[in-house]
């Protein structure tokens, strides 16, 4: 059998989502952002909600997320994506709005905005990429940096006396009555990707059903910032991040429909 006999539409088992724009990503090889972008593209595509979806990009490595997924986007100031998303969704409640943020953005400079958006139960999806570090600015300590973890601003490792403790902000978010679905996922294996995709799809479905805020943390690698190989970073994440940031759903409630005003 010739290979041409195999490459036929009826034999197609996997194809790239058309929403994922054909361009070279700026992400480092091994970075989790690209995988999460792929999942988002697939979910928006499969749910048929491209015309309704507005993405809010953060400051951080995902600042250019708008170059990769073929929907309308807005680029927020550092930490302010949940406030920007609030503005969009309050004016257009039928749009499906998601904020995409990293850990420095969401858990440090933007703590007020994320907590209050979730507490109001804004009808949005929040995708939270937690790689324990500031990736774009060159690997500084984040609120989520583990105790003892070496970063460019904690060269001797994170010292709790000096720097305080790593923040489990997702556990905090899960306490807020405005959230309907709060989960922690990862994307380092095919099985994890499939599971994460199910969570992200559920989060979008919740927004379609006007259930309030759905929050998906993705424990991620920053192998360049961690100064590891992609494979080594995955292993380090599994051994060090997962015990402190355990995976799984923290909250999945059937909340009454919320209305904006």
């Amino acid at each position: 059998m010739d290979i041409k006999d195999i490459i036929k539409p009826e034999n197609l088992v996997y194809k790239k989502s058309e929403l994922l724009i054909d361009t070279i990503m700026h992400y480092c090889p091994g970075c989790s952002h690209g995988v999460v972008h792929k999942i988002l593209s697939e979910v928006i595509d499969e749910m048929g909600i491209q015309e309704k979806t507005i993405g809010i990009a953060p400051v951080g490595c995902a600042v250019f997320a708008y170059n990769y997924i073929d929907i309308d986007w807005q680029e927020a100031a550092h930490g302010r994506a949940p406030a920007v998303a609030t503005g969009v969704v309050r004016l257009n409640p039928d749009n499906i709005v998601f904020a995409y943020q990293g850990d420095g953005d969401l858990a440090s400079i933007g703590t007020a905005e994320i907590i209050h958006a979730c507490n109001r139960g804004e009808n949005i999806v929040v995708i939270f990429i937690n790689n324990g570090i500031y990736g774009m600015t060159g690997g500084q300590m984040a609120p989520t940096t583990l105790v003892g973890q070496v970063t460019s601003t904690t060269p001797a490792g994170r010292n709790v006396d000096l720097n305080g403790y790593p923040m489990k902000i997702t556990e905090l978010i899960a306490q807020l009555p405005g959230t309907s679905y709060v989960t922690r996922q990862s994307v380092q294996t095919a099985a994890a990707v499939r599971k994460c995709k199910r969570s992200i799809k559920k989060a979008f479905q919740n927004v379609i059903d006007k259930k309030g805020t759905s929050f998906v943390e993705v424990v991620s690698t920053c192998n360049a910032g961690w100064k590891m190989t992609p494979v080594g970073a995955n292993k380090w994440m599994e051994e060090n991040m997962f015990p402190f940031y355990p995976l799984g759903d923290m909250k999945d409630s059937d909340k009454k429909e919320v209305s904006n005003n």
């Binding site: 302010r80 406030a83 920007v84 503005g87 309050r90 905005e113």
Partner: peptide, 15 residues
């Protein structure tokens, strides 16, 4: 906060 308010305006104005 005022910080959140103006960023809500930024989001809403974009629509």
């Amino acid at each position: 906060s005022e910080v959140a308010a103006i960023n809500m305006i930024y989001g809403a104005a974009a629509t």
